[in-house]
Computed example of a mutant assay.
Amino acid sequence: MENEKYIELRRDVLISIQRALWGMIYPSIRAIAVGFEETKKLTVIYYLDKEPEDEDYENISEVTGEVCSDIDFSTVEELCIYTNQPFSELDNLVSWVYIRKEE
């Protein structure tokens, strides 16, 4: 992807997911990472402090649905992962879009 087009898409993805996350963050989310491969694939990872439940998958689907209403991605990968690993050891894909303050 040309650098200028990549920068534009990155900006659009980050703005879109930030808007999509308004009111969607809840206490068990430790961090959220987003990645993309041109407009072929959008990946969003919720890192949780508990085992994922149906509500977590419903929430992430709402968020990715909002992003896909702004940007036409061909496929979407939604991951909800339970982990206590430090943020420095987690995959942030293209960018973190949320990190909870932890002591």
Results as ranks from 00 to 15, higher is better:
1 M>V: 11
1 M>A: 13
1 M>D: 13
2 E>V: 14
3 N>I: 15
4 E>P: 11
5 K>W: 14
6 Y>S: 14
6 Y>K: 15
9 L>S: 06
9 L>N: 05
9 L>I: 11
10 R>G: 09
10 R>H: 12
13 V>R: 00
14 L>Y: 09
14 L>Q: 12
15 I>S: 15
15 I>N: 15
15 I>W: 08
17 I>S: 03
19 R>V: 11
20 A>H: 04
22 W>P: 02
23 G>F: 04
23 G>L: 10
23 G>E: 09
23 G>D: 14
24 M>F: 11
24 M>P: 03
26 Y>P: 12
27 P>V: 07
28 S>R: 14
28 S>N: 14
28 S>T: 14
29 I>T: 08
31 A>E: 04
32 I>P: 00
34 V>F: 02
34 V>N: 00
35 G>A: 03
36 F>H: 08
36 F>T: 01
37 E>D: 11
37 E>K: 10
37 E>C: 05
39 T>M: 06
40 K>G: 04
41 K>M: 09
41 K>H: 08
43 T>G: 04
43 T>C: 05
44 V>I: 08
45 I>M: 04
47 Y>E: 01
48 L>Q: 09
49 D>L: 07
50 K>S: 14
50 K>H: 15
51 E>H: 10
51 E>F: 14
52 P>L: 04
53 E>N: 12
54 D>I: 13
54 D>N: 13
55 E>G: 12
57 Y>D: 08
57 Y>L: 14
61 S>Y: 10
61 S>K: 11
62 E>P: 01
63 V>G: 04
63 V>S: 07
64 T>G: 02
64 T>L: 01
65 G>R: 01
67 V>F: 00
67 V>S: 03
68 C>F: 03
68 C>M: 12
69 S>D: 12
70 D>P: 00
70 D>F: 05
71 I>Y: 04
72 D>W: 05
72 D>N: 11
72 D>K: 09
73 F>D: 03
73 F>I: 09
75 T>I: 11
76 V>E: 03
76 V>C: 04
77 E>H: 05
77 E>Q: 10
78 E>P: 00
78 E>Q: 08
81 I>P: 02
83 T>I: 07
85 Q>F: 09
85 Q>C: 05
85 Q>K: 11
85 Q>V: 00
86 P>H: 05
86 P>N: 06
87 F>I: 07
88 S>V: 07
89 E>V: 05
89 E>W: 08
89 E>F: 09
90 L>I: 07
90 L>C: 03
91 D>L: 10
91 D>K: 09
93 L>F: 08
93 L>H: 02
96 W>T: 06
96 W>Y: 11
97 V>M: 02
97 V>S: 05
99 I>A: 02
102 E>N: 09
